[in-house]
Amino acid sequence: MKVLQIGMGNNPGGVEAFVMNYYRQLSLKGIRFDFVSMYGEIAFHQEILSLGGQVFLVPNVKKDYFGYVKAMKEILAEGRYDVVHVNMLSAANILPLRLAKEAGVGKVIAHSHNASAPGMLRRILDQWNRPKISRYADVLAACGEKAGRWLFGDQAYEQGQVVLLSNAIDVERFLFSEEKRKAARAKLGLTDGFVIGHVGRFQLQKNHERILEIFRQIQEMEPDVRLLLVGEGELLPKIREKARDYQLEKQIVFAGVRSDVEDCLCAMDVFLFPSLFEGLPFTLVEAQANGLPCVISDRITREVVLDEERVCCLSLENSDTAWAAKVLSYKGCGREEPQITKKRLVAAHFDIHNEADRLLELYNR
Rank of each mutant, 00 (worst) to 15 (best):
I296T: 12
L306Q: 14
E361S: 14
E337G: 00
Q339M: 14
E309V: 04
V295R: 03
I296F: 05
T301Q: 03
E355I: 04
V327H: 07
I340C: 05
V327W: 01
T301I: 09
L328T: 04
C313S: 15
A348N: 13
A325I: 04
K343M: 10
Q339V: 08
A287D: 10
A324C: 10
A287I: 10
A324N: 08
G291S: 07
E309N: 14
L284K: 07
A322L: 09
R358L: 08
V346L: 11
L292T: 06
S297V: 07
W323F: 06
F350L: 13
A325Y: 00
L362W: 05
A356W: 02
V304G: 00
C294L: 08
N290V: 00
A348V: 10
K342Y: 00
D307N: 14
E361P: 00
V346M: 11
C333F: 10
L360I: 08
L362R: 09
C333Q: 11
D357H: 08
C313G: 09
K326R: 14
Q288M: 09
N354C: 09
V304A: 06
A322Y: 00
L314G: 07
R335D: 11
D357G: 12
E355P: 02
A287W: 00
R358V: 10
R302Q: 13
V285D: 13
R344L: 10
G334P: 07
R344T: 11
E303S: 05
S297L: 09
L292K: 04
F350A: 11
V285E: 12
E308W: 00
R335M: 07
E355Q: 15
D320W: 00
N318P: 00
L314K: 08
D351P: 02
V285G: 11
L345F: 05
D307L: 09
A287F: 00
L292C: 08
L345K: 02
V327C: 13
N318T: 05
S297T: 11
L362H: 09
A325E: 15
L360A: 14
T341E: 12
V311W: 00
P338I: 07
R302G: 12
